[in-house]
Computed example of a mutant assay.
Amino acid sequence: MTDELDFDILSAEDTTTRRDEVVTAVTDHAGQIARELAILQGGDYGQETFSTRKGKWTLKYEGGALQYLRYKGKSGGEIYVVSTKQPPEPGDLASAMRDYDEFVESYNEFVRSLDGVLDDVGTDFPAVETTETVVAERDRILGRIREVCDTICGELHRYDGTDYGTFRTTVSGTRWELKREEARASYLRVGGEGGIYLLSQYEAPSAPDVRELTDEFVGFVEAYNEHVEELEASLSQVSLDGRD
């Protein structure tokens, strides 16, 4: 029975070859538009839609490279002329390509519409005030706070006899925590977890925070002194001859 079937089967090779040639050419050409848009919009990722009389073209790019070019005619239906997934059906491609020139012209009009848009934008900006004085004063205050904290840490290191330790107290209802490594302050944190690091190994606090907390720091030092006085009072009650 199979021997009796004598039909000519036409090859689609010529059509698909031509389809691939057109897609490659469009990819190269629209890729130039993608690169220009990436430069214009100042980012590696984005998309833009351009309208023509017959429909709309949407171009998407990633890393400055064309990702897809989609055509949607007014009669409906979407055609991915360029895609990372699969090539378009030849008939759909042919329909879209009849409007491709207008797509390019729409893009060109978009670019031309931006000509001169920055011509009247002035660059005579106001003078920028320096933060040098504020930063210098902040650093001076923090330097003094660090000196005091290092002194406290030295005393605690001598008393505790350990390389690491933490002194915690409450000032006006706010928790203060001084952490030390040997005789040097690692950090001074105000407000517990998520609080403000008045001293840190990483970055300095803002000037307003320093202004707000410097007066409270006096209370922190006073709390430490009271702590030492309590230690001295407790030791003064110890008698080596067995009498209080």
Results as ranks from 00 to 15, higher is better:
Thr2Met: 05
Thr2Leu: 11
Asp3His: 13
Asp3Tyr: 11
Asp3Ser: 15
Asp3Arg: 15
Glu4Phe: 10
Glu4Thr: 14
Glu4Lys: 15
Glu4Cys: 08
Glu4Val: 13
Glu4Trp: 08
Leu5Val: 12
Leu5Asp: 07
Asp6Arg: 15
Phe7Asn: 08
Phe7Pro: 00
Asp8Tyr: 11
Asp8Gln: 07
Ile9Phe: 15
Ile9Lys: 10
Leu10Arg: 13
Leu10Ala: 15
Ser11Trp: 00
Ser11Pro: 01
Ala12Trp: 09
Ala12Phe: 08
Ala12Asn: 14
Ala12Pro: 07
Ala12His: 07
Ala12Cys: 08
Glu13Lys: 09
Glu13Asp: 11
Glu13Ala: 13
Asp14Leu: 11
Asp14Lys: 14
Asp14Ser: 12
Asp14Ala: 15
Asp14Asn: 08
Thr16Glu: 15
Thr17Asn: 14
Thr17Val: 10
Thr17Ser: 15
Thr17Ala: 15
Arg18Gln: 12
Arg19Val: 00
Arg19Lys: 10
Asp20Ala: 03
Glu21Arg: 10
Glu21Lys: 09
Val22Lys: 09
Val22Cys: 08
Val22Thr: 06
Val23Met: 00
Val23Ala: 02
Val23Lys: 01
Val23Thr: 00
Thr24Asn: 14
Thr24Asp: 14
Ala25Trp: 13
Ala25Lys: 14
Ala25Tyr: 06
Ala25Arg: 13
Ala25Ile: 09
Ala25Cys: 04
Val26Ala: 02
Val26Leu: 05
Val26Pro: 01
Thr27Glu: 14
Thr27Arg: 15
Thr27Val: 04
Asp28Glu: 13
His29Ala: 13
His29Glu: 13
Ala30Pro: 02
Ala30His: 04
Gly31Lys: 00
Gly31Trp: 02
Gln32Lys: 13
Ile33Asp: 04
Ala34Arg: 02
Ala34Asp: 03
Ala34Lys: 03
Arg35Trp: 05
Arg35Glu: 11
Arg35Leu: 09
Arg35Ala: 14
Arg35Gly: 12
Arg35Ser: 11
Arg35Val: 03
Glu36Ile: 06
Glu36Ser: 12
Leu37Gly: 00
Leu37Asn: 01
Ala38His: 01
Ala38Cys: 03
Ala38Met: 02
Ala38Glu: 02
Ile39Ser: 07
Ile39Trp: 06
Ile39Met: 06
Leu40Gly: 06
Leu40Ala: 08
Gln41Met: 07
Gln41Ser: 08
Gln41Lys: 09
Gln41Asp: 12
Gly42Thr: 01
Gly42His: 01
Gly42Asp: 04
Gly43His: 04
Gly43Ile: 02
Gly43Phe: 03
Gly43Thr: 08
